[in-house]
């Protein structure tokens, strides 16, 4: 299961056991799996304890995870944020711009879309209409500065 970052493919260094967001253990620290249709309330309630959050993309046509990432960042989450599942190289820039740090893909997908196809999108900060229009990245301090 390669992890994709701006530097390319790497093995998973997290060493985490993820718990589903609707069944979190009583004590932290927490590594949380968030489904694309999950209610975020239990996650938002325990963000302080979370060290890693993994948002599922059941299909590359399902864009809910991008909004979830931004919601988590606006709520103040600053830990590792990972998109996991059927995310294709063409969506890498979207994932990064939405606040994800990295993408976890299957070995099959990595074989079909090798590292160079992902690196081609590693310049996700370029050609970005959003930042050109002065929209800041989603963080708690930015969202609260009204």
């Amino acid at each position: 299961m390669p992890i994709v970052t701006d530097a390319g493919f790497a093995p998973d260094d997290l060493n985490a056991r993820f718990s589903p967001s609707d069944d979190l253990p009583a004590n932290g620290p927490l590594s949380i799996d968030v489904a694309s249709d999950a209610d975020l309330t239990p996650v938002l309630a325990r963000l302080e304890e979370a060290t890693a959050i993994r948002v599922a993309f059941p299909s590359s046509a399902d864009g809910r995870g991008f909004t979830i990432a931004r919601q988590l960042r606006r709520a103040g989450y600053t830990g590792r944020l990972r998109a996991e599942g059927h995310v294709i190289a063409d969506q890498y820039a979207m994932a990064r711009r939405s606040g994800f740090d990295e993408v976890e893909i299957s070995d099959d997908l990595a074989a079909r879309q090798p590292e160079d196809q992902w690196l081609a999108r590693a310049d996700w900060q370029a050609h970005d209409y959003q930042s050109r229009l002065g929209r800041r990245r989603d963080t708690k301090s930015a969202a609260a500065s009204a």
Binding site: G63, F66, T67, R70, M94, H127, Y129, Q130
Partner: peptide, 16 residues
Amino acid sequence: ELLRQWSTDHPEFQFL
């Protein structure tokens, strides 16, 4: 035109 720029390649909204 402003909306065109804002919505173009909007990272959150390409898979609605």
